[in-house]
Amino acid sequence: MLIGIIAISFSSIFIKWSAAPVSVQGMYRLLFTSLLMLPFARPYTGAAAALRARDWLLLLFSGCMLALHFLLWMGSLSYTSVASSTMIMALEPVFIMLGAYIFYKEKTAAAAMLGMAVAIGGVVLIGWGDIGISPDNLKGDLLSIGGTAAVAVHLLVGQKLVIRMPSYLYSLIVFVAAAVVFAVYNLVMGISFFHYPSKEWGIFVLLAVVPTVFGHILFNWLLQYVSATTVSMNILGEPVGASILAFLLLGEQLKVLQWAGGLLVMLGLGVYLYTGRKKTAQSETALPSAS
């Protein structure tokens, strides 16, 4: 979880460094990640052959939602700051919690909800001084909200699918599907596939290796062991890491309230994870006596 949080914190930095269209960044990010994963996919061919038509449809839908997430969220960084965009992205657990309750009847303990509230409050402080009322900032905020909703759907579908298939196979198929969606989008919009300087290609590779392999793939793997709500709570750590990196590498200034918000995020995250871990431990203890 810690490795994943650090890795995804670099995502917004790489995106800010790039001058390429966000749809091209997203396409090559997912394409290069898929190519890195392919050599290790042979043991999962049997599992792929056993997938039902409904599974393939859900995988395609999850890939579309992932592509939509990248398109909207990455696009938001062209209009607003790293702190603002990642602060809004941290509302993802709210979408996840509601979706998990509606579709999976998954309940959340009161203490965990308190931790979630504290963490989200901290995220609000991080972006408080950075959210403006200009048309550009508003557009960036709306794009980030749309991207947050899309990735929440992606994670909820993933939670259902990784029960029946290896997380590695799930990640590979979904990344390929999302890359294809981006390719079709770029083709329709007449966006160039190849005419970019070497610096951009380096950024595409960094986006694939750092936040995707060590971020999204790790989070997909975690879905086998913890709920989508818990995985999404870890993303609350991204605004902290991303804001610090934006300060160091992009010169984006942070106010005292934003530093205080970072501490609240980590506190709330700790409360939530501790409550979830305690609940899991109690369940495991109860199983032998129940049997």
Rank of each mutant, 00 (worst) to 15 (best):
L125Q: 01
L169G: 05
M113A: 07
M165I: 10
V210Y: 13
I131D: 06
W201Q: 01
P197H: 00
G122L: 02
L206W: 05
F175W: 03
V174W: 13
G115P: 13
F182Q: 03
L143Q: 02
D130C: 11
M165Y: 08
V184W: 14
R164G: 15
I120M: 07
A117D: 02
F182G: 06
N186I: 15
L155D: 01
I145C: 01
I120R: 10
L125C: 07
G190A: 03
T108G: 04
L169M: 08
A179L: 11
G115K: 05
V184D: 14
A177P: 05
I145L: 07
E200R: 06
V180H: 09
I120G: 09
G121C: 09
S134H: 07
P211Y: 01
Q159H: 13
M113K: 09
G127Y: 10
A149W: 13
V124F: 06
I163W: 05
A119K: 04
T108V: 14
F194M: 08
I145Y: 00
R164E: 15
G129L: 06
S144I: 09
N186C: 15
I145M: 03
G129E: 01
S167N: 06
A152I: 02
V181N: 03
V153I: 09
L142P: 00
I120L: 12
A179P: 15
T108R: 09
V123R: 02
H154W: 13
T108M: 09
T108W: 03
A178I: 04
G190H: 07
V210P: 11
A177Q: 04
G121D: 08
Y168H: 14
V174P: 09
I173N: 07
I163T: 06
N137C: 15
N137T: 15
Y168V: 04
T148A: 09
A149V: 12
A177Y: 07
S192W: 03
A110Q: 10
